[in-house]
Design a protein around this nucleic acid. Structure first.
Lengths: 341, 341
DNA sequence: CTGTTAGCGCCTTCAA
DNA sequence: TTGAAGGCGCTAACAG
């Protein structure tokens, strides 16, 4: 049972390959006589004909493959996004080709190159950051690009995101409602617009309440557990009163902060309240469960895949940026805190 | 800047396409005059030539694409495996094409079909289960298949796994050492060899110590949080003394069990000690941190990718199954338990 | 309705 | 060391 080609099928059915090709394509089946179709299909079945997307893609210019570039496969937040994408692709005969940029522009460029060389029909980029503009623009000249989760302000590349500034405001509001006055944030990399916006929203909401955020002079180089821990330790090493409230720019960083607190015999929520971001599955099961801002990853993935498929069909569609609202999910890491004086 | 083809490059360099083709291929560059190579490369650079894997793949029979079928992208355990695979692929010009089977044989079959149609050079399957044999065998006739993490006993398909039976024994031993006598397990789906083997190793080790495991009449239908919770509740609903030790067949199920315990005002580790499986990142940060068996996902991914690339180059290699040893990571969920009498 | 012809972009003979 | 010719498997355009 070696590779069965269309030629084999055609021969067996006693027709020309082009007829066989038509008979096997749902869209062009109508052009062929019923009986012939039946004969060809029978032959295909018997031989176990599988078709060859590669050859077909070469000819048609469509590979039915959608590229997806993520920043970090290890970030639990990415799974729902990818699932959302796959969910939307399924049934349309499309498949996701996944690459990882690890937040490095060089890798991003390489990933886009590979995807273009493989003639992906479109690419969804969930891991864009400052420095990726050039590569993205170049790619955009060859195929539709859709940004998801992270957008690049001013790039004009269609994006499906959620409102991070609003998310930051929600976090600030929550702390204010609970009576905090010494409030800090552990910021993610500023090359990523989302973290910048979370920071801005957070800071502004505090300022409008007449409170200045305690600012750390450093940002996380990457939005990871380790960096969250490192920043929290920086905060703990400072002289003066510890903040009573910390907004970590994502859940992983919040976990890191939690760990650092424990290492220094401080407890959450008694000493310090913490808010994370993303509503990763595990935030509900940590000690304490962590208050977090829910980012609708699955929906974002679906919408991104949806716009991508629209762009594939008609390159002039859907320029309006799509934005979903964030929601705060309150848990013990903030609810358990009580003012001391 | 439309699609730049080899023809364009050749024209600009003033050579024939076949010469350009040779000049651009590292393996055949030596056949071409140095100066010509330089000229061609310059032309390619200037035009921004990208090549076309699709066309090249059609001709060469290699697409430099490796299919990966995972059971569940949402399982945090899978990320390191995929990263391990990508790590190994990187630099070899290969890319991973990812599909999800969701533990359903129908989807598995479809995923394999898609990957074959896209002419993947090989496929790594991390989510095999009973019922997938047919589809895998069929696929195996067209391209090399490597099982990772989960194997299919008796299928003869090369597999890179770790020793689950031993993992089960480790869990049992740990409980025995700590003085437990009423011991149960929350089993994962028995269609997956790993869970079966974990169960067997666990049961046998207990038996050899003269202790019978408390058996639940049900298994988890999927190895998820919800199923772990459901099984734990089944256990809690039973009359008679509660077990003091629970071996959950993976971390997600352990989290579920933890939640069920909390819902019923039982605490871990005081009332019940729990062991999970996989050493997912979050097991270290739950309340309590969970003792778990470390499954070296990253290494498994690397080794699987490695054998896959070997098989691509020479289909007769590496039939010996590769197995890595499990390690128990002790944490408070078991260390904090004390015998009551 | 079906067959013929001509490529998609690249690579591999084979010959020069 | 290079060019010419042919084809990977499929499909679009044009005849019939």
């Amino acid at each position: 049972m070696q590779k069965v080609t269309l030629k084999d099928v055609a021969a067996r059915a006693g027709v020309h390959t082009s007829t066989a090709s038509r008979a096997l394509d749902p869209d062009r089946r109508t052009l062929v006589h019923q009986e012939t179709v039946a004969r060809v299909r029978a032959a295909a079945d018997q031989l176990g004909y599988r078709g060859d997307s590669i050859a077909s893609g070469l000819r048609r210019g469509r590979t039915h493959t959608l590229g997806v570039v993520v920043a970090d496969l290890g970030n639990p937040f990415i799974a729902p996004v990818v699932r959302g994408i796959e969910h939307q692709l399924e049934g349309r005969g499309l498949m996701a080709l996944i690459a990882e940029s690890r937040d490095q522009p060089t890798r991003m460029a390489r990933a886009l190159d590979s995807l273009m060389a493989r003639r992906a029909d479109a690419v969804i980029v969930t891991g864009a950051r400052v420095g990726d503009e050039r590569a993205l623009r170049k790619a955009q000249q060859q195929l539709p690009i859709v940004l998801a989760v992270r957008h690049l302000p001013g790039s004009g590349i269609p994006a499906v995101t959620h409102d991070d500034e609003r998310g930051g405001r929600l976090a600030a509001e929550h702390f204010l409602e609970h009576g905090h006055t010494r409030i800090a944030q552990l910021a993610g990399p500023q090359e990523v617009s989302n973290f910048r916006e979370r920071g801005v929203g957070f800071r502004e909401r505090l300022r409008s309440a007449g409170i200045g955020a305690i600012e750390l002079e450093e940002y996380g180089n990457r939005p990871t557990f380790e960096e969250g821990k490192r920043l929290m330790e920086l905060l703990l090493a400072r002289t003066g009163a510890l903040p009573t409230a910390i907004f970590a720019h994502n859940d992983l960083m919040a976990f890191g902060a939690l760990q650092a607190l424990g290492d220094h015999d401080r407890s959450c929520p008694e000493d310090v309240a913490i808010i994370g971001y993303n509503d990763t599955l595990m935030t509900a099961f940590t000690d304490p469960p962590i208050t977090t801002i829910r980012l609708p990853g699955y929906e974002l993935g679906r919408m991104a895949a949806d716009t991508a498929t629209m762009l594939i069909e008609d390159r002039e569609q859907a320029r309006t940026p799509l934005t979903l609202p964030p929601v705060l999910v309150p848990r013990r890491s903030t609810l358990g805190w009580l003012p001391k004086d």
